[in-house]
Design a protein around this nucleic acid. Structure first.
Length: 585
RNA sequence: GCGGUCGUAGUUAAGUUGGUUAUAACGCCGGCCUGUCAAGCCGGAGGCCGCCGGUUCAAGUCCGGUCGACCGCGCCA
């Protein structure tokens, strides 16, 4: 090695020791015959002092981000010690400084805010100079903890193909044209779902993989075209087996990353319906209260028709959120802004009732009977304000769920250090898609469900699936299910989903056939590694947990991918472009 | 596919009702400086105001389009 120590580990107990350090120059400070160099690496930074006139002349020519090797003696800084960085008590008195490689001036100032554009273009510099390097190190540790836990539990790491068959349902596939089979395409996996089920049928019993998945949809601050799943599947397992395993794994990861984190003995479980009713979302953030309340009973006989109709109609509901201690601090204007926000979720309006000095205040008060006023008053604490949406059930829930979220972040009542995990269970197996005018699988079409209920003619929307999601701090970090292992049941699902026998055969024939060769009961779960790392580290942007991320329009500013290719390459694939797009390189 | 915010030296920003040579800080280059800690002081270079078009005597500024970044909606089993 070119070094004996890294730039973050020297301290007073090494006084007088001859060391070699390697690193990047972060600062150079000249004072005529004396010169200081700060050199750093990912472990820290150390000051080098240069007194020798020849060395000073040599080092004067060096500049920031040059890579150097310093050979010298660790000395005490005495009265010039600093506590601004961990090595601040010592410095290295240089005997020799070797330039290993020079650097052009940095393209941007890493001590200040810089645009995402330039940081993504020079991603390797952003990693070198920012917290990204620590986040990536932490991510590596999360992966190691995961592997360690799963290996300990007898899971086998088995790779599955990246070049796959395109399947219907779900997200848009990334396609890869085939040279040997002109006109045919591989698809990159949206997840290794079918392969892990085939591994169960193959008798591998316990499988896991930390694996890239690809979805060609539109992106957000928490969504990237390629992302990583911790994919897990096990045979002869029921819900509780998968959930217990997953929960223990996550606990081990979190306590490995945050030893001070306080976690519940076992993660609370709530049903999908309860999550929707109490939080207006299937991924509730339980770090704070301010839960939704149902006001149908209070208003079903109200003379205020908008409320009464919603309260009586079964497809509608009156939902409220109480903000405590704020009745006197929201202006008419602020409330107007909140109304605009809930209207963005489709709600017709946002009503409010304040309680100040024991008296209710609201533009709607004149519509309410004494009885209603008493009931409302018993719900609202002094100086509280009740916000209300009366609308279609799904709109009321969604808009108040989002309202709760916005209000919590505006009031800054979220404990950023808390980790609040839970399970959401009893998801509906099927949802009716207005857009496609057919039923679609809520989780995916291989999820087991209560087939007896279907056979006895129950409403499809009321059928529960055997799926479960793990939610931490309002983020769905993982989800899975017990799978269908019976061919007839699987065919039944395809018929419910309107996938014809021929199409099912064409798209999933190999799975359907495999199910007939002694498929064991099995189930599993997949975690989004990127999101898991974000939640554990409290990072907001998925870009920050990925070494080389893409932009929200799925381009790489560093390599300029995607790019056009030569006509020779296209010819070889038998592909002809319909219109000439501008070069985006 | 839709909406919002933004785009001016290498970087981050300022730029007034449209009006002389487009500012500043940091960085860069040159010089000074014996204990700095984002060192300091003096001097200098550096601009397709994202791109295309329009309005105007005159556009960084107004209008239309377009490209890109970010945030959100739809979408993401």
């Amino acid at each position: 090695m070119l070094r004996t120590h890294n730039c973050g580990e020297l301290s007073l107990d090494k006084l007088g020791v001859s060391v070699k350090l390697c690193g990047w120059i972060t600062h150079k400070r000249e004072f005529g015959p004396i010169l200081f160099l700060m050199i750093s690496d990912r472990y820290g930074m150390t000051q080098v002092v240069i007194n020798d006139p020849t060395l000073v002349e040599k080092c004067k020519k060096m500049s920031a981000e040059d890579v150097i090797q310093v050979q010298g003696i660790v000395i005490d800084r005495n009265e010039n010690r600093t506590d601004k960085y961990p090595t601040g008590a010592i410095e290295v008195e240089a005997k020799e400084v070797t330039l290993l490689n020079s650097s052009k001036p940095m393209p941007y100032d890493h001590n200040k805010e810089a645009s995402d554009t330039i940081k993504l273009k020079y991603r390797y510099l952003d990693i070198r100079k920012s917290r990204i390097r620590d986040i990536l190190a932490a991510r590596g540790k999360v992966t190691a903890l995961v592997r360690n836990n799963l290996e300990k539990n007898g899971f086998l790491d088995i790779e599955t193909p990246v070049l796959n068959k395109s399947t219907p349902e779900g997200a848009r596939d990334f396609l890869v044209p085939s040279r040997m089979w002109k006109g045919s395409f591989y698809a990159l996996p949206q997840s290794p779902q079918i392969f892990k089920q085939l591994l169960m049928i193959a008798g591998m019993d316990r499988y896991y993989q930390v694996v890239k998945c690809f979805r060609d949809e539109d992106f957000r601050s928490d969504r990237q075209p390629e992302f990583t799943q911790i994919d897990i599947e096990m045979s002869f397992a029921e819900e509780s087996d998968v959930m217990e395993l997953a929960e223990n794994m996550i606990k081990e990861v979190i306590s490995g990353m945050k030893p001070d984190a306080v976690l519940p003995g076992s993660f609370p479980m709530i049903s999908y319906n309860e999550a929707m009713e109490r939080f207006g979302t299937d991924a509730p953030d339980t770090r704070y209260g301010m839960e939704l309340i149902t006001l149908d009973d209070i208003f079903k006989n109200s003379s205020f028709n908008a409320f009464a109709n919603a309260a009586k109609e079964s497809s509608m509901s009156v939902k409220g959120v109480i903000v405590e201690g704020k009745a006197d601090s929201f202006s008419r204007n602020e409330i107007k802004k909140m109304e605009t926000a809930v209207q963005g979720d489709g709600a017709k309006g946002l009503a409010f009732i304040k309680k100040i000095n024991g008296e209710l205040e609201s533009p709607l008060l004149k519509f309410f009977s004494e009885n209603e006023i008493n009931e409302i008053s018993s719900v609202i604490p002094e100086n509280g304000i009740l916000f209300i949406v009366a609308d279609n059930r799904s709109i009321a829930l969604k808009s108040m769920g989002n309202f709760r979220k916005r209000m919590a972040s505006e009031l800054d009542i979220i404990d950023k250090t808390a980790i609040s995990p839970l399970w959401v269970i009893d998801f509906p197996a099927f949802e009716f898609s207005e857009e496609n005018n057919r039923w679609v699988a809520t989780h995916h079409p291989f999820t087991d469900f209560d087939i007896d209920a279907v056979e006895s003619g129950a409403d499809l929307s009321q059928i529960s699936s055997r799926a479960y999601d793990m939610v931490i701090n309002g983020h769905e970090v993982g989800g899975g299910s017990i799978r269908i292992h019976n061919i007839e049941k699987q065919k039944k699902v395809f018929s419910i989903l309107g996938i014809g026998e021929k199409e099912a055969e064409e798209k999933f024939g190999f799975l359907l056939e495999a199910l007939q060769f002694g498929a064991p009961p099995h189930g599993g779960i997949a975690f989004g590694l990127d999101r898991l790392v974000m939640v554990i580290l409290g990072v907001d942007a998925i870009r920050d947990v990925i070494a080389f991320p893409k932009t929200t329009s799925a381009s790489c500013l560093m390599s300029s991918a995607p790019s056009t290719v030569t006509t020779d390459q296209l010819d070889e694939l038998g592909i002809k472009l319909t219109e000439k797009n501008n070069d985006n390189n």
